[in-house]
Design a protein around this nucleic acid. Sequence first.
DNA 1: GTCGAATTCAAACAGTTGTTTAAAATAGCG
DNA 2: CGCTATTTTAAACAACTGTTTGAATTCGAC
Lengths: 208, 208
Amino acid sequence: MSTKNKILDAAELLFADKGFNGTSLREITSLGEVNLAAVNYHFGSKKELIKAVMSRYMNELSPRLESVLNALCQEDTQPSLIEVFSAFIEPLLYLNTFKDNGTSTFLQLLGRGYTDSQGFLRWFLTTQYPEVFTLFTQAVHKAYPELSAEEMFWRLHFTMGTIVFTMSSTDALIGIAENDFERQVDIAGVIKRVIPYVAAGVAAPILI
Amino acid sequence: MSTKNKILDAAELLFADKGFNGTSLREITSLGEVNLAAVNYHFGSKKELIKAVMSRYMNELSPRLESVLNALCQEDTQPSLIEVFSAFIEPLLYLNTFKDNGTSTFLQLLGRGYTDSQGFLRWFLTTQYPEVFTLFTQAVHKAYPELSAEEMFWRLHFTMGTIVFTMSSTDALIGIAENDFERQVDIAGVIKRVIPYVAAGVAAPILI
DNA sequence: GTCGAATTCAAACAGTTGTTTAAAATAGCG
DNA sequence: CGCTATTTTAAACAACTGTTTGAATTCGAC
């Protein structure tokens, strides 16, 4: 395996677990068993490494997301909100075949990115992959045309919050749940549980 | 104003904005215009300072929350979920009279605490203020008795995620919203928008 | 005013951070 | 082989981290 990939693998693991600020380059290079200077040699800086870690996932995810959302938008029949959100399942779970624990890791990274380092990752994603956001908004509008742009703005951000926050603490929550309810839970189970929740939230009656 | 309070005021501002890990003691003492060593003298350590910042809010909030939730639990009639979540509004907004921007700052701190420093704040809150969590669970159960304990566990954590995450990026979101929709938004407005969302989410039909 | 405790202060501590350097090692090609 | 370009390496860099020290100052009670 190339040094570059050793670094990316070690970095994504630590970033997901301890956040971007909370992970040092020495921890990464130590876990990846490469020299400290290799990060700056191959990626230039820590910030560029963070972008590279996210891009590796986004480049797999975004075409698949665009494809399913496009299909939804071009159908003749009106989709339900459940269908819109369910469209995310297959592309997200695909990350598991692309990489061990890929889905969970990616969603944790996403959660980190929104809170760590004052939202620079939010800027990175919305500017680098804007099509996904546009298509998603279109699909929601098709499923729920009565929702005003302003209301949709807030509800989509609430949804983003639910997903991202839940997933960034998935491991802890799954641990508690398995202990309290004595049954096995996995990431796919959590995703399937959260969809009715966010769908109902977005579909909530509009306040007067 | 006492040195202790100068430190607390500066710390909560910076913690809310840049996170606990992202804020150094030198930034705090510089903003508060006190000596660097004062933090360790008055609080012992940075970790204890974080606890003190959170406690100052929780000691105001928790008795008020317990009071309204208790009232809800002891009523004869069954409350709606909207009523349960609306019970949080008054105690939360009270923090605004207690301190400028208190509500927003506290919710941002809460968001930070859940992601920063690997969830030690989650442990701190659930162990130091367990009554609030118990009463909240009871109130939701009264409003929606069909919800199993397991389903409730997940939906309450989804809700926590929505609130905490939204509020931790409130400032950015309010900025975008005011720019895009040309109307003023404040923290009370966001709270009132999020309640129908989380209430509908918790009330979502149970998946089979 | 005097004493003793509480507080403030500048300075230094030891440790970590991301990044850079220049020499050493390796690889690929003619 | 020899030569160049790429990559790896150990070491050092300056800046920053939380914490501690011991002397200087301020304060309140007598």
